[in-house]
């Protein structure tokens, strides 16, 4: 056992094997193509692509990015080309450079919207999982509105469940009193897994103008600062439901990946770090074997 070459990084998520436990989080990796120009993205376990809605969306007015201590705010608001264009243009391009199942991030303004997007995306063979985004804080209708109420969350997950045979993963918001209540409601409605967490609602004010930095005033806070919050949510959820959990929030290093998995995560997403370091996912995966070896982990499925 030298250089961590003998460790086994395989894991699985809802019956689909991942050769690496690390994936890029939705909204930080586009549809993969920008990163495929930089490195072979097949080194990733997979990635969750940009939140996709029935119609094209421009999103919110700019400025919609703000820097914070050890993190950032965004109020992008689900800008995406719409599900039809994603199927016709983005996914065929992706198939040329990425040869593993990809995670689709599904959004909408109503349960019917979610079901429509899920049904259309289910036709694409390369999509392995549907990650249902009931936690985006940057849209007026839908998004977080569904993920902060157990009944509404169940309604969306139920609507998606009906139209697909692919694994359905609910991506949850931390902006709730008890995240396990939402997780339980999603489990009861037929979810196969949980991603935790989406961004925390936050805001910054510009001292010179005395006005919010973001045009939309509030946005989603992410980055290394939220890691303990995400870890806590993963820990609580894995003890409350019998579903695999994907840990997401503030992951920056291979050690963070292991810590997330020790909290109970089956796989781990890297989000904001991709934006400040486009090679973050690749470098974390390269560093993982040595980190596993350092902490006496030979096999991610058995030794954590």
């Amino acid at each position: 056992m030298v250089n961590g070459r003998d460790v086994d990084m395989r894991t699985s998520l809802c019956g689909i094997e991942l050769d690496k436990p690390v994936m890029a989080a939705s909204g930080t990796f586009g549809y993969g193509l920008e990163f495929a120009e930089l490195y072979d993205i097949n080194v990733l376990g997979t990635f969750s692509f940009k939140g996709t809605t029935p119609e094209p969306r421009f999103g919110n007015p700019t400025p919609r990015i703000a820097d914070c201590t050890e993190g950032m705010l965004n109020s992008v608001g689900l800008q995406n080309p719409g599900v039809d264009k994603v199927l016709e243009e983005e996914l065929p391009e992706l198939a040329k450079v990425f040869h593993k199942p990809v995670m689709a991030n599904v959004c909408g303004g109503s349960p019917e919207d979610y079901a429509l997007v899920a049904e259309k995306l289910s036709q694409c063979d390369q999509i392995g999982w549907l990650e249902v985004n009931i936690s985006c804080p940057n849209v007026r209708s839908g998004g977080m509105a569904f993920g902060t109420d157990p009944k509404a969350a169940a309604e969306v997950i139920g609507a998606v469940r009906k139209v697909t045979t692919k694994p359905v993963i609910a991506k949850l918001s931390p902006n709730v009193t008890d995240i396990t209540e939402i997780a339980k409601a999603c489990e009861a409605a037929g979810a196969d897994g949980i991603t935790a967490i989406n961004t925390l609602l936050g805001m910054r004010i510009d001292l010179k103008s005395r006005k919010p930095v973001l045009a939309r005033e509030m946005g989603g806070f992410s980055g290394p600062a939220v890691f303990p919050v995400a870890l806590r949510a993963v820990y609580q959820i894995t003890r409350a439901v019998d579903l695999p959990v994907v840990g997401c929030g503030g992951v920056r290093t291979a050690e963070d990946v292991l810590e997330m998995m020790m909290a109970g995560a089956k796989a781990v997403q890297v989000g904001s770090q991709n934006l400040v370091d486009p090679f973050a996912c690749r470098d974390i995966i390269e560093a993982l074997p040595a980190a596993m070896e350092k902490y006496g982990i030979k096999n991610l499925r058995e030794d954590i």
């Binding site: 909204g27 586009g30 700019t62 400025p63 919609r64 965004n74 800008q79 400040v276």
Partner: peptide, 15 residues
């Protein structure tokens, strides 16, 4: 425009 990544991934600076 205020940018997140600077290389087209985050859609922060769209117009």
């Amino acid at each position: 425009e205020r940018m997140g990544c600077g290389f087209g991934a985050c859609m922060g600076c769209s117009c």
